[in-house]
Design a binder for these strands. Structure first.
Lengths: 350, 350
DNA sequence: ATGAAAGCGCTAACAT
DNA sequence: ATGTTAGCGCTTTCAT
């Protein structure tokens, strides 16, 4: 068994209080005493028991991160940023994967997950805004990329409608008219797909084009294979699209794969835009034009929200609804031009 | 403030003991009492305090996962598998990113990280086997993908030498003779790159080819851009390779990108093999031949090691050195043939 | 079947 | 500057 504060105190011939002071630097300790205590600590290999500290403090220093799946590049990147940002605030992150399971999301929100944490950052997938809003939450929660749950929890996201509009408008500006969309999720109501569809249609209408269900391809999930399947369906249709806006980069990369397989040239025959700006899209062939959300800011602001709620529970402002900037990164999949990434270069020239 | 066991006990008119029994089902409680307690729990919205439980139990139910970076597809996939596998054992996973920083790795190993956990799974990057072995560890540790630290901690990994040999032999079997390697890391001594280089050279020698430093490209890190840079160097050389074995899929995808940029055809002009079998390689153009480690088994066995050490500290067997299977997945980047993925199909035919 | 009480290891209010 | 001690919320031994 490892040694405790008391053991160290006994060994150094001081009280527990003094050892605690030395460990935490919380009060003045004479140099001599300090050294004696330090020696005892070293000799015994003493490590403070975190569980005891947590119990005492009423806080764990742990925040939860609940995302659909860690292996998806978008969530992997975001999780990485959050872990690092949390660390800067001396927080530890425990990660849960919901796999889009409503029950799992519910458990996390209600605090029945059996995880001890001071706050939760969750990217809901299956749960609708209504249910998220009505769930009793025993701890501070920040929602990511979710339709605002009627001001009942902080939320951080890009403006999905505007972003989808930007992407679609870019395709229209290239002169494309048969612009398809891949990524609708009629079975889900978490808001994201709906908002991107809305932005897509808005851009079409502004260009004088009537949105048609024929160009809107639903997907079961957001993986590459779903994008490939949707693209196959589009290519099998009577009239082929000359542009595709995929609601995520993974879908876009799957679509790109299928285009290659079918001998469709990108961007000549088909211009393609994704969403998320994942690393893969910078090295695909051709490189992928995409909507780039500011992921660093998403991570930073989500943590800031949590910090405010956790450390200042007294002055509770109403729920925040934070919009994070995005930008369109034009690459080769829509640009038959130079072949260069015009927004962000990650390779040495030459 | 949230309510405690005592509050529930008072409200239900029973002792804390009984409430605890109801919550944990640990002893027989009369149906009537049980119901009364349950009502009190519901009315008060009582949730057990995990910190107190942990203190009492001397265990946290938390294990740490320390990896270089979460956003890399390989580690993202592995982390996802570990999180799910841990959950099946009612464990929570806290993730730390070391970013290949020796100091960060050291802190985790010595337990000075300020994270409360029952065990640690770490994929060391900067630390050498020697130092890992000599570090005093206050908790059970499993090493991933690391050279065996002289039997001083459990370790789970593929046979890197054999795997690299397989990959290289595959290229040689295609009739390629100028086989380059991308991914050496002379500045690191964590073992992985060295072992893959060794397997690469072994295969060459067996084919009667003398390994030459000219074909061995070092990289600063294992990202796509490093692979692209290394490939550029190879293509700028006096004699061009007709095959490349990249030590990771990310490097391979970066190399592939550069090949496209330079107009080099894959696999006709250049056959390419990666390592890790990340999702991207199944949808790249062309799809990527790769060495596929059994990631699910890595996760499962790492957790099993940890469980054995945590739950049965008394019968301590010597450190285990577990080798997990791998297989070569042949795809289009080495197969000018059918264009089909011959080992694992992730798309519907048609 | 249930109650009373000790104690897990730590911090901090109260002492000196 | 340092000692003494209560108590965070829970589980569990001992007792009834």
């Amino acid at each position: 068994m490892s040694s405790s504060l008391k053991d160290v105190a006994a060994r150094a011939g001081v009280s527990a209080r003094t050892v605690s002071n030395v460990v935490n630097g919380s009060a003045r300790v004479s140099a001599q005493t300090r050294q004696r205590v330090q020696e005892a600590i070293d000799e015994l290999g003493y490590r403070p028991n975190l569980a005891a500290r947590n119990l005492r403090a009423g806080r764990t220093g742990v925040i939860g991160l609940a995302i659909p799946e860690l292996h998806s590049p978008y969530f992997g990147e975001l999780a990485g940023l959050l872990v690092d940002a949390a660390r800067r605030r001396s927080w530890t992150v425990v990660i849960d994967q919901t796999h889009g399971d409503a029950e799992a999301e519910r458990r996390l929100l209600t605090g029945d997950s059996g995880r001890a944490m001071d706050g939760l950052i969750i990217s809901p997938w299956a749960l609708e805004a209504q249910e998220v809003a009505s769930t009793a939450r025993p701890l501070p929660v920040v929602l990511l990329g979710e339709r605002s749950p009627q001001g009942l929890a902080d939320r951080v996201a890009v403006d999905n409608v505007a972003a989808a509009d930007d992407a679609t408008s870019h395709l229209l500006a290239l002169g494309r008219r048969r612009v398809a969309a891949i990524g609708l999720q009629p079975h889900l109501h978490n808001g994201t797909a709906e908002q991107r569809a809305e932005g897509y249609r808005r851009a079409l209408r502004r260009a004088g084009i009537t949105p048609s269900p024929r160009w809107e391809r639903p997907v079961a999930s957001l993986h590459r294979q779903d994008g490939a399947r949707a693209m196959a369906e589009l290519l099998d249709g009577e009239s082929r699209p000359d542009a595709v806006f995929a609601f995520t980069d993974e879908l876009a990369l799957g679509a790109l794969h299928m285009a290659h397989t079918r001998g469709v040239r990108v961007p000549e025959d088909l211009a393609l835009v994704g969403f998320d700006d994942i690393e893969d899209g910078r090295f695909s062939h051709p490189t992928l034009t995409t909507v780039s959300p500011d992921k660093g800011q998403i991570a930073e602001r989500a943590l800031q929200c949590l910090a405010d709620r956790i450390y200042s529970p007294e002055n509770q402002v109403p729920a925040l609804d934070l919009t994070v900037p995005h930008r369109l990164v034009v690459r080769d999949s829509t640009d038959p031009g130079t072949g260069a990434d015009r927004s962000a270069s990650h390779l040495p020239t030459g």
